[in-house]
Lab assay of single mutants.
Amino acid sequence: MTEYKLVVVGAGGVGKSALTIQLIQNHFVDEYDPTIEDSYRKQVVIDGETCLLDILDTAGQEEYSAMRDQYMRTGEGFLCVFAINNTKSFEDIHHYREQIKRVKDSEDVPMVLVGNKCDLPSRTVDTKQAQDLARSYGIPFIETSAKTRQGVDDAFYTLVREIRKHKEKMSKDGKKKKKKSKTKCVIM
């Protein structure tokens, strides 16, 4: 069974824990209790493949930012979460993405942009803004509501699919490099 290491990042209060708990335990946590770091595991079937999701729910508070490099190193894919009623959390996505790329030393890291709290009427981040940002990053965008469960499975499952595509691409690139290195030079 394939294991996928997913990391949920975003500013404090955007609903990272609520999304994760909704996926794992099928219930909505409405009281806000700032996370330092929590880890969850769940076995699911995605596109006919049974897999184990190892999900790291991270601290959004700035005082825990020193811990970010460590979990970013171990993560295979990242859910970059903002709240649709919090423009600052949307603007912060850029910083999370840049930090992930720096730590992973790669421009090509599996990510999904997630606009959470889409059940709320007080939207300050337009869907088109988020779609445009995701398009500019070359990553999928999904709106979710941890409260109603809308888009929750889709967000995590899409990230797994992005990781699969990335692994497939990397193995193809690896095979191309191996083929090239088999060419021999004969000096007579």
Rank of each mutant, 00 (worst) to 15 (best):
Arg161Ala: 07
Gly151Trp: 12
Lys175Phe: 05
Asp132Ile: 04
Ser136Gln: 14
Arg135Gln: 12
Asp153Arg: 11
Leu159Ser: 00
Met188Arg: 10
Thr158Glu: 13
Lys128Tyr: 05
Glu162Ile: 03
Asp154Phe: 05
Arg164Trp: 12
Asp173Val: 01
Ile139Cys: 10
Ile142Gln: 11
Thr127Pro: 09
Ile142Leu: 05
Lys172Ser: 14
Asp153Met: 14
Thr127Leu: 09
Lys178Asn: 11
Asp126Met: 06
Ile163Ala: 06
Lys178Pro: 06
Phe156Ala: 11
Val152Phe: 13
His166Trp: 09
Glu168Gly: 08
Ile187Cys: 15
Ser136Cys: 09
Tyr157Lys: 15
Met188Val: 11
Ile142His: 02
Tyr137Lys: 03
Asp126Cys: 10
Asp154Tyr: 07
Lys178Met: 09
Gly138Asp: 14
Leu133Asn: 02
Gln131Leu: 08
Arg164Gly: 11
Ala155Gln: 01
Val186Cys: 03
Val152Ser: 08
Val160Pro: 00
Ala155Val: 12
Lys169Trp: 07
Val160Arg: 02
Lys182Tyr: 09
Lys169Gly: 11
Ala146Ser: 12
Glu162Lys: 05
Ile187Trp: 05
Ala130Pro: 03
Arg164Gln: 13
Gln131Arg: 07
Arg164Lys: 15
Met188Ser: 14
Leu133Ala: 05
Lys172Tyr: 13
Lys175Ala: 10
Thr158Lys: 10
Lys169Arg: 09
Lys147Glu: 13
Asp154Leu: 10
Ala155Met: 09
His166Ala: 06
Lys167Phe: 03
Thr127Asp: 11
Ala146Phe: 05
Thr158Phe: 06
Lys184Ala: 09
Ser136Phe: 10
Val152Cys: 08
Asp153Phe: 11
Ala146Ile: 03
Tyr137Pro: 01
Lys178Gln: 08
Tyr157Ser: 14
Gly151Leu: 11
Lys167Met: 02
Ile139Asp: 01
Gln129Met: 05
Glu168Trp: 02
Gln129Cys: 07
Lys180Trp: 09
Lys165Gly: 03
Thr158Trp: 08
Arg161Ser: 11
Asp154Pro: 04
Thr158Arg: 05
Tyr137Phe: 12
Cys185Pro: 14
Lys128Asn: 09
Gln150Phe: 04
Arg135Pro: 01
Lys167Asn: 09
Phe156Asn: 00
Lys165Val: 03
Gln129Glu: 14
Asp132Gly: 05
Met170Glu: 14
Thr144Gln: 15
Val125Cys: 06
Asp153Pro: 08
Asp126Ala: 05
Thr127Gln: 06
Met188Ala: 14
Thr158Leu: 04
Lys165Leu: 06
Ile187Tyr: 14
Val160Thr: 02
Lys178Ile: 09
Asp126His: 04
Met188Tyr: 11
Lys167Leu: 02
Lys176Asp: 10
Val125Ala: 08
Tyr157Glu: 15
Thr183Ser: 13
Asp153Glu: 13
Lys172Thr: 12
Lys175Asp: 13
Leu133Gln: 04
Lys167His: 13
Arg161Leu: 01
Lys178Trp: 05
Asp154Ile: 05
Lys167Ile: 02
Lys169Ser: 11
Glu162His: 02
Lys128Val: 07
Leu159Cys: 04
Val186Ala: 14
Met170Cys: 09
Leu133Thr: 03
Lys178Thr: 12
Ser145Phe: 04
Tyr137Ser: 04
Thr127Ile: 10
Leu133Val: 06
Arg164Ser: 07
Thr127Ala: 08
Val125Trp: 06
Arg135Val: 03
Arg149Cys: 13
Val125Gln: 05
Ile187Lys: 14
Tyr137Glu: 05
Lys128Pro: 06
Thr127Trp: 08
Asp126Glu: 10
Thr127Phe: 13
Thr183Gly: 11
Tyr157Asp: 12
Thr144Val: 15
Arg135Cys: 09
Lys178Asp: 15
Arg164Ala: 05
Cys185Arg: 15
Asp173Thr: 08
Ala130Val: 13
Lys177Val: 05
Gln131Asp: 09
Glu168Asp: 08
Asp126Arg: 01
Thr158Ser: 07
Ala134Ile: 01
Tyr157Arg: 14
Ala134Arg: 02
Lys165Ala: 12
Tyr137Asn: 06
Leu133Met: 12
Ser145Gly: 15
Val160Phe: 04
Thr144His: 07
Cys185Gln: 15
Tyr137Leu: 15
Tyr137Gln: 03
Lys177Tyr: 11
Met188Asn: 14
Ser136Lys: 14
Thr183Phe: 00
Asp132Thr: 04
Asp154Lys: 10
Asp153Trp: 09
Lys169Leu: 11
Val186Gly: 06
Lys169Ile: 11
Lys165Thr: 06
Thr183Ala: 06
Leu133Arg: 03
Thr127Lys: 08
Gly174Arg: 01
Arg164Pro: 03
Leu159Pro: 00
Ile187Val: 11
Asp126Lys: 07
Gly151Phe: 11
Leu159Gln: 00
His166Cys: 07
Asp154Glu: 13
Ser181Ala: 08
Asp132Leu: 03
Gln131Phe: 04
Gly151Glu: 03
Val125Asp: 13
Val125Gly: 10
Ala155Trp: 08
Lys172Ile: 14
Thr183Tyr: 05
Phe156Gln: 02
Ile142Pro: 00
Asp154Gly: 07
Val160Glu: 01
Tyr137Cys: 11
Lys128Ser: 11
Ser136Pro: 04
Ala130His: 04
Phe141Gly: 00
Gln150Leu: 06
Glu162Cys: 03
Ile139Trp: 00
Met188Asp: 10
Ala130Ser: 05
Gln131Thr: 04
Gln129Leu: 07
Lys179Ser: 13
Ala130Asn: 04
Ala134Trp: 01
Lys165His: 03
Lys182Ser: 11
Lys128Asp: 09
Arg135Lys: 10
Lys128Thr: 11
Gln129Arg: 06
Ala146Leu: 14
Lys176Thr: 07
Val125Leu: 06
Cys185Asn: 15
Lys180Gly: 10
Ile142Asn: 03
Asp126Ile: 05
Phe156Ile: 15
Glu162Trp: 03
His166Lys: 12
Glu162Phe: 02
His166Ile: 08
Phe156Asp: 00
Ile187Ser: 15
Gly151Val: 09
Gly138Arg: 01
Ser181Leu: 02
